[in-house]
């Protein structure tokens, strides 16, 4: 069954009034995700942009229970919430830990790995802006090769850690990548995750205009280019079966990389190196854009 925008709830369970920067990719991901998850959802978010833009003093932009956790603990907290709901016989509530790339892949990785290994019935969402944007954009493990950050002006010299591969190595039943440029794909994946009573992992590309050096109106457009050039593959692995959920048109990677300030140091050689890597990955002819 294909999802249609017209079928989605109009009600916003997250978003209105949030204090995100203009064109915030994370806020867009939050709005899209809540169209899938619905009102019977509890969200734990560690220290991050998303936690900060979600609430301030006596106000919050969430319509569902939201808890701003410590940096390392969102999945562990979610596991505890699930345990309490089970103890109280409450079965129809989604428990989501929603972390940035740091709260997922770096400082939050231990508790995430623990929850995945235990197969706790929670959904972990990584909204990935590929830098530590809540502290001005330093390098993290999800920062891609060569990207300039606020503490690596010459660009990162190592590759982005493949979180989906790592999470799949835990033997979890459902893992997927997603992009804010493809909302119906994203929403369908979260609906699948929510329908399961086991650990699920969804990794969403959420550009940040400040960190990426793009105009505020390009957050979605640049995410789409990441998908279309093949650098951000949209796929899911459901009970061990891998499926690409969107076939990219294979625009040149340069069209994705060149407009971004964080890649301004990239030479033609390095762009070609990345194009070659994409071609190899998708078994496309060498040299073909």
């Amino acid at each position: 069954m294909t999802l249609s925008i017209k079928d989605l709830p109009q009600e916003d369970l997250f978003g209105p009034g949030n204090a995100g920067c203009r064109g915030c990719g994370a806020a867009i991901a939050g709005r899209q995700a809540m169209k899938a998850l619905g009102p019977r959802t509890i969200v734990s978010i560690p220290a991050s942009c998303m936690a900060t833009l979600s609430g301030s003093n006596q106000r919050t932009a969430w319509q569902v229970p939201f808890y701003h956790t410590l940096f390392e603990i969102a999945p562990a907290v979610a596991a505890g919430i699930r345990a309490a709901l089970d103890a109280q016989g409450i079965r129809d509530v989604n428990v989501v830990s929603w972390a940035g790339d740091a709260g997922t892949a770096d400082i939050g990785f231990q508790s995430l790995s623990g929850a995945a290994e235990r197969n706790d019935a929670i959904i972990h969402v990584c909204y990935d802006n590929e830098m530590y944007m809540n502290t001005n954009g330093q390098t993290g493990s999800q920062t891609p090769l060569y990207a300039i950050t606020s503490n690596q002006r010459k660009g990162k010299q190592t590759c982005k850690k493949d979180m989906l591969a790592i999470m799949l190595a835990h033997g979890i039943g459902y893992a997927a990548s997603a992009s804010i440029s493809h909302p119906l794909d994203l929403i369908a994946k979260l609906k699948k995750a929510a329908a399961r009573r086991s650990f699920s992992y969804v990794h969403i590309l959420t550009p940040c205009y400040r960190g990426w050096g793009i105009p505020t109106d390009q957050s979605v457009a640049v995410a789409r280019k990441a998908v279309e050039c093949g650098l951000w593959e949209l796929y899911e692995v459901e009970d061990g079966v891998r499926r690409r959920t969107y076939e990219p048109s294979f625009i040149p990677v340069a069209e994705y990389l060149a407009p971004q300030g964080r890649f301004k140091n990239l030479t033609a050689d390095k762009i070609q190196e990345m194009q070659d890597a994409v071609n190899r990955y998708y078994h496309r002819e060498e040299g073909k854009a």
Binding site: L70, I73, A76, G80, I81, R82, Q88, Q110, G114
Partner: peptide, 15 residues
Amino acid sequence: HSALAAALGAALAGS
């Protein structure tokens, strides 16, 4: 660290 975090999640959820 996660032990107390999980306990906290459970307490916040009312257990």
